[in-house]
Design a protein around this nucleic acid. Structure first.
Lengths: 202, 202
DNA sequence: TAGATTGTTAATCGATTAACAATC
DNA sequence: TAGATTGTTAATCGATTAACAATC
């Protein structure tokens, strides 16, 4: 929960830095996101004393601290599994690269797509997954395969030593407890919206 | 928060019904999702008395109730704005249709894509947005345009009477308070993952 | 010094869980 | 009736907010 907020703060600090703002108070930050200033201070203080009493937080310094905490002070090679519609969309999506996530290798089972490159990124058959993931020291994988294939892909990822999975397949996948899993489920997002619309007309 | 859980329960009930299970207890449901059975009962009781003491919940009946509460007892026409990589991926995504969401109209500004149909769904130029959205009584929109175009699209959607927006553009958009907004931000999802990986090695 | 703002403690609030009478 | 399970109240827990001494 706090981690999500750290991400949001970081993005805001990037913007402030661009705008040439040197310092920012917890009140300023809180206002931007409808949060309480005590909440902001507590979030930040949890990781260390980053502020200066009477002044606030130095934008550049705080940004660097938060990026370090979020692991954004380095580049993360990412494996993309599934290069269909969704996979290509994610691959071309600009948002990812900005914070240091770099798709380093792609896997797909369609022979027409494999053994070539997309913008310099090699595309392999899924059978090569373990070899290529290990060779590149990839720890994060994005799963964008059909639901039927998701669990099998997940098992192979675990066997290859992957430590975190962002899952777009519309199905539950089971992973060992020490592998982080994040599901992106479009239906759930839409259902929260339709709930409120339906409620309005009840 | 509860709404998300209702979605999850509903999906589980669909599965149970397929499997021929007639009744389910709060304990059964709780176990499946690492929740507390009191939590499940409270979530459900909030909307009415759906259970039977000594028995549990009738799967078919509870499913129908939850679908009604979530607004899934009807079809929702959805407008998709942006038919690039991401837009096409979403369009072909099987998950959406299953719960009654149907992409009824697509908008894009590339003349090569407009004034034709994709699987029977018409594609219009964005300038026709208000007209076509109103004609179809569409209340939900999925925004899959580049960040630069997102706010302008959002404004047009509001003007056309849209009541809920699922935003994939990697930027904040501002909407009137009575329009529901849900952001799907890939970077934030990845950052929560890299946070835990970085923490592990700290 | 006076004003501003932090970090942190104590108070509040809301959400989760335990417990149990009601009842199928 | 005995066993099971609900709906709900009371207890617990955790997260948010208010307040303020510390201090720039």
């Amino acid at each position: 929960m706090t981690v999500r907020r750290l991400s949001v703060y970081t993005r805001c600090l990037l913007q402030l830095e661009e705008d040439g703002v040197k310092t920012v108070s917890s009140h300023d930050l809180a206002e931007r996101f409808n949060l309480n200033s005590a909440q902001v201070r507590k979030d930040l203080a949890y990781f260390g004393e980053f502020g200066v009493r009477g002044i606030g937080y130095y934008v550049a310094g705080l940004k660097a601290e938060l990026q370090r905490i979020l692991g954004l002070d380095r580049e993360w090679p990412v494996a993309l599994i599934g290069f269909g519609n969704l996979g290509s969309a994610l691959f071309h999506y600009k948002g990812l690269g900005r914070q240091g996530f770099r798709i380093a290798v792609i896997f797909d089972d369609d022979p027409a797509k494999t053994n070539r490159e997309a913008n310099g990124v090699p595309i392999f058959a899924t059978r090569d997954l373990a070899r290529e993931v290990k060779a590149r020291g990839v720890q994060i994988a994005i799963v964008a395969v059909p639901a039927e294939a998701a669990q099998s892909v997940a098992d192979q990822l675990v066997a290859a030593g992957i430590k975190a999975v962002l899952n777009f397949a519309p199905t539950r996948i089971r992973l060992p407890r020490d592998v982080r899993l994040k599901d992106v489920d479009l239906s759930i997002e839409l259902e929260t919206l339709s709930f409120y619309l339906a409620k309005g007309s009840r």
